[in-house]
C-alpha cells in the first residue's frame, strides 16, 4: 500500500514519531507560554530544566533505585522546587526591568546548569530504561505502535489539556489570569501576586521536568539534550504566538507532525522545517497564528 509513492507503514511510522516529538514540543512550549503569561519573560533555562528532569530520573534510578513511576511523580516536584528557589532568590529582583534581562538571566541559569552537569557527568549520554510494563509494541495492521511512545503522547495530551482546563476553567486559573491582567490592582484586592508568580514559574518548570523524565528512556540523557531542543521550541512559540495556552499546545503537536511528514518527503529539511515555517509565518502574520498582539 502506498500514498504518493511512500509506503503507508513508513508514513504512519514517521507521523507517529512526529506526534511523539510534538508531545515534547507541546509540553515545553506550554511551559514557556504559562511562564511568559505571568512573568512576561522568556525562560531560556527551560531546555536546562528539561535536561535536569531527565537527569533527575536517571539519578533517582541509579542511586535510589526509584522506579519510573515514582520518578514521574517526584521529578516535577524537584524541578518546581529548584525553579521556586531561582525565582525567589534572583528572577524576582528583575521585576519592572526590561524583560530582556529575564531572558539573559535565565540564559545564565542554563549555562550554569548545563555546564555543571557536564562537569559532573561528562558529555556522554547516560542510559535510562523505560518501565517493563511499557516495553514492546502492538501491531495495528498498518504499522507497529511502540507502547512507550503511545504512552508519552497520551500523558502529554492529558497534562496539556489538564493545564488548559486549570487555567481557563478553575478559580485558581481565574486568579492567575487576573494577576496577569493587572498585577498591582490584584495585590490591592488581596491576591498574593509574588507567590503566584513563584508558583507559576515552578509550575512551568515542572512541565519541563515531566517532558524531561519522559524523554529519558528514548533520547540520550546528556547535559546538552535540551539546548538545541529549546531553540526549536522557541520557534514553535513564535509560530503559535505567546498569547494563548491552546495555541502553544496545538502548535507543538502540529509542528511535530509537520516535522515527521517532512522526514518522509524530504528528510534533509526535517531539521530546519520548523524554522522555515517560523520565517514564513512571521513574514505574513507577525503576531503568530494564535497571537493577539503584534
Amino acid at each position: 500500500m502506498e500514498i504518493f509513492g511512500i509506503s503507508v507503514p513508513a508514513l504512519a511510522g514517521q507521523l507517529l514519531i512526529g506526534l511523539f516529538n510534538g508531545a515534547f514540543y507541546a509540553l515545553l512550549s506550554l511551559g514557556l507560554a504559562v511562564i511568559f503569561g505571568m512573568l512576561r519573560i522568556i525562560n531560556f533555562a527551560h531546555g536546562a530544566f528539561y535536561m535536569l528532569g531527565a537527569f533527575s530520573a536517571y539519578m533517582l534510578s541509579a542511586y535510589l533505585e526509584a522506579s519510573f513511576w515514582v520518578s514521574l511523580l517526584i521529578v516535577p516536584l524537584i524541578l518546581a522546587a529548584l525553579a521556586a528557589v531561582l525565582e525567589r532568590s534572583m528572577l524576582q529582583r528583575l521585576a519592572g526591568l526590561d524583560p530582556l534581562y529575564g531572558l539573559l538571566l535565565t540564559f545564565g541559569f542554563a549555562l550554569i546548569l548545563e555546564g555543571g552537569m557536564q562537569y559532573v557527568f561528562g558529555v556522554a549520554g547516560q542510559p535510562y530504561s523505560p518501565p517493563a510494563s511499557l516495553s514492546g509494541a502492538s501491531n495495528l495492521g498498518f504499522m507497529f505502535m511502540p507502547h512507550y511512545r503511545a504512552f508519552v503522547i497520551v500523558v502529554s495530551l492529558i497534562v496539556c489539556f489538564g493545564t488548559w482546563l486549570l487555567i481557563e476553567r478553575t478559580k485558581i486559573g481565574s486568579i492567575l489570569r487576573a494577576a496577569t491582567e493587572n498585577p498591582s490592582l490584584s495585590e490591592v484586592f488581596g491576591l498574593n501576586v509574588p507567590v503566584l508568580i513563584t508558583a507559576t514559574y515552578a509550575f512551568g518548570a515542572a512541565l519541563a521536568g515531566i517532558a524531561g523524565i519522559m524523554a529519558a528512556p528514548v533520547f540520550q540523557v546528556s547535559p546538552y539534550m535540551g539546548s538545541n531542543l529549546i531553540i526549536v521550541v522557541f520557534a514553535v512559540v513564535v509560530i503559535g504566538g505567546m498569547g494563548s495556552i491552546m495555541g502553544a499546545i496545538i502548535s507543538g503537536f502540529a509542528l511535530g507532525l509537520v516535522e515527521g511528514l517532512t522526514k518522509v518527503i524530504y528528510s534533509e529539511a526535517s531539521n530546519v522545517v520548523v524554522f522555515v515555517i517560523m520565517a514564513i509565518v512571521l513574514y505574513f502574520r507577525p503576531a503568530g497564528l494564535f497571537g493577539k498582539d503584534a
Partner: peptide
C-alpha cells in the same frame, strides 16, 4: 478584569 467573565470577576476577591 476585562478578559475574565463577569462571574469570575465577582468570585475573584
Amino acid at each position: 478584569y476585562n478578559s475574565l467573565s463577569v462571574q469570575e470577576n465577582l468570585k475573584l476577591l
